[in-house]
C-alpha cells in the first residue's frame, strides 16, 4: 500500500503499471480517477488537509479494505492546493486476483475518502470563495459498507 498527499499532478496509467509490474498473480486492476468539474462557473478548487492525520486516516481505511477483500495492491494519491477545472484530484487503484474485490474495495475507499479523510474543499468563483458543505448523500453512500450492528 502506498499513500500520497501531494500538490503535484499524477499519471494514473504509470501508477497502475508501477503497482502491477512484475506481478503475475494479479488478475484485476481497478483505477478510479476523480476530477474537478467546472459546475456553475467554478474557476478553481482549493484543497486543504490535516497533515499527519490524513495519511493515518487513509491508512486505517486501507487496512480495513485489506481485511475485507483479498487485495494484492493499493495505491492512493490525493492532491491538495489549487486545482483548476478538469484537473485530476484523487486516484485510487486496487489490485486483486479477481474483479469483485478490486471493484468493491475501490468503491469502499472512495466512499471513505469522501466522508472520513480530513480534506476540505473551497470552491472559487472568480474573486468569490466558499467552503463546500458535506453532502448527506455521501454519508449515506458510505454507510452501505457498515456491517449490521455498527453505528
Amino acid at each position: 500500500m502506498q499513500i500520497s498527499v501531494q500538490e503535484a499532478d499524477f499519471d494514473s496509467a504509470a501508477e497502475a503499471l508501477a503497482l502491477t509490474s512484475g506481478r503475475n498473480d494479479i488478475g484485476a486492476v481497478v483505477t478510479f480517477e476523480g476530477r474537478v468539474r467546472a459546475d456553475d462557473g467554478l474557476t478553481a478548487l482549493r484543497l486543504e488537509h490535516y497533515p499527519g492525520m490524513t495519511e493515518a486516516e487513509i491508512a486505517r481505511h486501507v487496512d480495513a479494505a485489506q481485511a475485507r477483500w483479498p487485495l494484492l495492491g493499493v495505491r492512493i494519491i490525493h492532491r491538495i492546493g489549487r486545482l483548476g477545472p478538469g484537473a485530476r484530484i484523487v486516484l485510487v487503484i486496487t489490485a486483486a486476483a479477481h474483479r469483485r474485490g478490486a471493484f468493491e474495495a475501490a468503491d469502499f475507499l472512495m466512499d471513505y475518502l469522501k466522508t472520513r479523510a480530513p480534506f476540505w474543499k473551497q470552491e472559487q468563483y472568480g474573486d468569490d470563495a466558499r467552503w463546500v458543505d458535506a453532502k448527506l448523500s455521501d454519508l449515506d453512500t458510505a454507510r452501505r459498507w457498515q456491517k449490521p450492528g455498527q453505528s
Partner: peptide, 26 residues
C-alpha cells in the same frame, strides 16, 4: 491525537486536538 473523536470523549493525556467542519475530500 489525529483520530476522529466525539464530544463526550475524555481528553486524558491528549497532545493535540483539532476542530474542523465536516470533511469534503475525494
Amino acid at each position: 491525537d489525529q483520530e476522529h473523536a466525539c464530544w463526550d470523549q475524555e481528553l486524558d493525556a491528549a497532545r493535540e486536538v483539532a476542530f474542523f467542519p465536516p470533511v469534503t475530500g475525494g
